[in-house]
């Protein structure tokens, strides 16, 4: 049981986290822009998250918190 939380306002939608996820479950959502105008990263399937924190390690904006 693990999960990531993306800080909606800190995320700049750079997508670096999407390259790091071994489960390929981190993507940029295309529905809602944050105040800076970015589509932010989300986990599309919490059930598959293993809490490896690779996405957070790759994030240049400290926008991802990981719990396990």
């Amino acid at each position: 049981m693990a999960k990531i939380t993306v800080n909606f306002e800190k995320c700049k939608g750079c997508a670096l986290c999407t390259t790091a996820c071994p489960k390929k479950i981190v993507e940029l959502q295309k529905e809602k822009r944050n105040r800076k105008g970015y589509f932010t990263a989300v986990c599309i399937d919490d059930s598959q998250c293993i809490g490896c924190a690779m996405c957070a390690t790759m994030c240049p904006d400290c926008a991802i918190t990981v719990e396990k």
Binding site: K12, A53, M58, P60, D61, C62, T65, E67
Partner: peptide, 29 residues
């Protein structure tokens, strides 16, 4: 569940001015 990864305490809780994807933020962290 316990937090296993978060912003380090030695970094201020503000959004960096760096461009999206600029790796300065990783190095700061």
């Amino acid at each position: 569940m316990a937090v296993v990864f978060e912003k380090p305490k030695a970094l201020a809780d503000i959004t960096f001015h760096y461009c999206p994807g600029c790796t300065h933020g990783i190095i700061h962290r």
